[in-house]
Design a protein around this nucleic acid. Structure first.
Lengths: 211, 211
DNA sequence: AAATCTCCCTTGACAGTGTCAAGATACGAT
DNA sequence: ATCGTATCTTGACACTGTCAAGGGAGATTT
C-alpha cells in the first residue's frame, strides 16, 4: 500500500531514510548555529552524505528550512495542547492562559526554530505543509479567545482586537525572553513559570481587572 | 580641538567620508536584502569601493552591523520621543500609549533594521555604542510605567511585571505586524493607527478596565 | 623643499557557501 | 537478466567573508 508518491516516508534506498535524517541534522544545525549560521553543506556533513544530496530531497536551502518550519508548527500546536491537557479546568479564560504558556514553552524549548518560524523570510510560508499547521495554531488562538468572549471573535472588530492583543502579549513575551538581553528575563522571579502565569492572567483579554 | 581619536568624523582622505557612506550603503543593503541576505561586499559595491574597504573601518561584518544597530537604537528613541512630543497631554497613561505607538512606528518604518536589533545575534549588543542607546530606550519605558504606577517600577515585582507586560504587548504587536503573515495585520481596520491606539489603551498596564 | 611616515584603500588569495550539470550506483520492475 | 529510474556523488562555477601584502595620497619631519 502506497502512502504518498513524493513526500511519504519511503523505506530505504541507500541510506535508510535520508529525508528524515536530513531534517534531524538540519534541526541540530539550526539549534547550534542559528538561522543566520545555518549551512546546507553543514547539514549534509552531519548526515554523512555528500554536499549536494539535500538538493534532491528539498530542492534548495529554502526547501529544507520550509520542511523544518512545517515540523516546527506541528510541534508548536502540540506544545500548546499539552498545557491545555494538563488543566482539568474548563474555564475559558484559564484555557487561554494555558495556550499562552504553551506558546512560551515552545519558544524556550526551541529558540532557533521559533526564530525561524517568526523572524525569518527564508522558509516558504505559502507552502501547504507550513500553512496547514500554522492555521491550526491560529485556530487554537481564535477558539480560545472566542470561548472567552462567548462569540466568534473574528466576527467583530472588538473580537479581532482581542485576538491581536492576546497574540501580541504572548508572542512579545516569548521574543523578549529569547532575545535574553532584557534585564527582566534574566531575573529569575520575572521569568519563572508561575510569574509568567500571573502576568498573563492580568494582561490577556478577559482577565485582570476585567475579570 | 580633537574630538575622538578613533571614531570621530574625520573630514576626508581619499573618499570624503567613507565610514558614513558605508553606513548609508549598509542601511540600503539591509532594507533591500534583509538581515539574512546582507552582504559586506554588496555594501562595498554600493559605496563604490573595493571589497575589503569596509574592514578597515568596521573590522568585519559584525562590526558594520553593530554600527547599524547602534544608529537604529538612536533613531528608535527618537521615534518614541516624537510621539510623546505630539501630545500635549501630560497624563502618564497616555504617555505610555504614545511611546508604544512610537515603538510600532519605528518597526513599520524600518522593518529590517528592527529585525536586526531584535531578532539577530550578529551585531555585538555588548558594544558601548549599542548599549547606550538601548538603555535610553529601556529607560523611557521604565520611566513611563513608573509614572503610571506612581513609584519606581523596578522596585517591586508588580512593577517589573508591568514593565514586562507593556514591553511584551508593544513588541509583540510590532513583530506580528512585520511578519505580515497574520491575517490581522492585512486587515486595514485592525492595523490602522487609531485601532492600534485602542488596543493599547485596553491592554497596557494601567489602562482598560483598570483605568 | 625633499624625504619620510602614516593612514586609507586596493589587489590578490584562501576557505567556505549554495546551486547546477553530469556521472556513477543500486534498487525495483519487466 | 536486463532495463529503468530514483538516489547519491563528483566536479564546477560564482559568490561570500576575511586575511596578507602592496600602492598611493596627505601630513610630518628634517
Amino acid at each position: 500500500m502506497e502512502e504518498q508518491t513524493t513526500r511519504g516516508a519511503k523505506p530505504a534506498y541507500h541510506h535508510g531514510d535520508l529525508r528524515q535524517a536530513l531534517i534531524a541534522a538540519a534541526e541540530a544545525e539550526l539549534a547550534e548555529k542559528g538561522v543566520e549560521g545555518f549551512s546546507l553543506r553543514g547539514c549534509a556533513r552531519r548526515a554523512g552524505v555528500s554536499h549536494a544530496a539535500p538538493a534532491h530531497h528539498f530542492g534548495d536551502t529554502a526547501g529544507l528550512l520550509t520542511a523544518l518550519a512545517a515540523d516546527g508548527y506541528r510541534r508548536f500546536v502540540i506544545a500548546m495542547q499539552a498545557r491545555l491537557d494538563e488543566i482539568a479546568d474548563a474555564d475559558p479564560f484559564e484555557r487561554l492562559v494555558a495556550i499562552g504558556l504553551g506558546y512560551i514553552d515552545f519558544a524556550r524549548a526551541s529558540p532557533s526554530l521559533f526564530r525561524l518560524m517568526h523572524s525569518s523570510f527564508r522558509p516558504d510560508f505559502q507552502s501547504a505543509d507550513v500553512a496547514v499547521h500554522a492555521r491550526d495554531a491560529f485556530a487554537m488562538l481564535v477558539g480560545c479567545v472566542s470561548a472567552v468572549r462567548g462569540e466568534d471573535a473574528t466576527a467583530t472588530l472588538e473580537g479581532l482586537n482581542d485576538i491581536m492583543a492576546a497574540w501580541s502579549v504572548v508572542h512579545g513575551m516569548s521574543d523578549l525572553i529569547l532575545s535574553g538581553r532584557t534585564l527582566l528575563s534574566t531575573m529569575q522571579r520575572v521569568g519563572s513559570d508561575e510569574n509568567l502565569r500571573t502576568i498573563l492572567r492580568r494582561t490577556l483579554p478577559g482577565g485582570g481587572a476585567t475579570r
